[in-house]
Design a binder for these strands. Sequence first.
DNA 1: CCTACCGATCGGTAGG
DNA 2: CCTACCGATCGGTAGG
Lengths: 188, 188
Amino acid sequence: MTTAISKKQNIINTAADLFQEKGYNATSMRDLAAKVGLEPSSIYSHIRSKEDLLSEICMSCAERFTLGMQDIFDQDTSARKKVKELIQLHLDIAFDIPASVTVFNDEWRFLQEPVLTSFLEARKDYEKKFKKILTEGKKAGKFDFQNIDIVFNIIIKMLSWSHTAIKKYNRDELEGELNSLVIKILNK
Amino acid sequence: MTTAISKKQNIINTAADLFQEKGYNATSMRDLAAKVGLEPSSIYSHIRSKEDLLSEICMSCAERFTLGMQDIFDQDTSARKKVKELIQLHLDIAFDIPASVTVFNDEWRFLQEPVLTSFLEARKDYEKKFKKILTEGKKAGKFDFQNIDIVFNIIIKMLSWSHTAIKKYNRDELEGELNSLVIKILNK
DNA sequence: CCTACCGATCGGTAGG
DNA sequence: CCTACCGATCGGTAGG
């Protein structure tokens, strides 16, 4: 049983590598089979479909963001501290599962229903909480910005970019720069 | 002759719409044919291959950025003015050819050689000039930042995000916010 | 987990 | 610009 689970997980992880490298649509199940050392048909003893692989990758990644956000959101700390922890969350996930988070960012639009709807709901919830933290900081007189939607989107883009930057920089340098740049955006 | 050119351009523009909507790999030549009102094989009287369509879209977009950057780079004005004009350049292109610029951003990695190399060279040149402008501003004491590579990438990500934001905001609002946020990042 | 195989769809060509 | 068609490849199944 342990072997079965870890074999399945190995297939999913390898799929994440391939989806990141070639994109979901340009990756064939034959590519994947070759890379895990199985005949193409044998893959289907472990997973149901190519579609399921993408769902698994995107939703497990979404769950990490959802749980991480919930933790931070519920803390009894300042908005600035929460933003700092959100940056840490993004970097934790990026350093832990770099391929998955890239697939999560770039290939989610190929998800099929009903998974697509769950995915978008999780995203929406993440966005709502993030914006509440920003608004909290503004009300406390700590943050200043005009259009919260634009500011949110730009910060999210900065954080998503950092997912791809982890090969070029070390963790501390990247975290320091991101903290400084995000704070610059949120200050007066 | 005019008809031939505009028919070809119509096919390219429709391809850009489809590549944006479904992604390059998930778009079939049959999808494209149906949307332009031709039989699949008739497409090939106007273009050589699916690959050529992507090249055409990406390279014509790259050219707009290259020419626009050259103009701005050569100006005898302050770095701050140049950055302001770069933001305008991105928005001009985004409002003019929204589908193409999205394909340019998201699908360029499916370009084949030798076009891929040209594309990457154009990008690299754009990056070099952009960084020189940032450095110029820093030397003049107008900009302040630590890591130029990180700052460049984050500004580029902000500008690329704006390409997708043109449906939600009007031009002036978006330009104003971008100016203000980019300047915040570059100020002390 | 493999051999053998399926129907569907792909990008593209021949020939008119 | 169309009809007719090609070889290649796709995701996936049957059966053991």
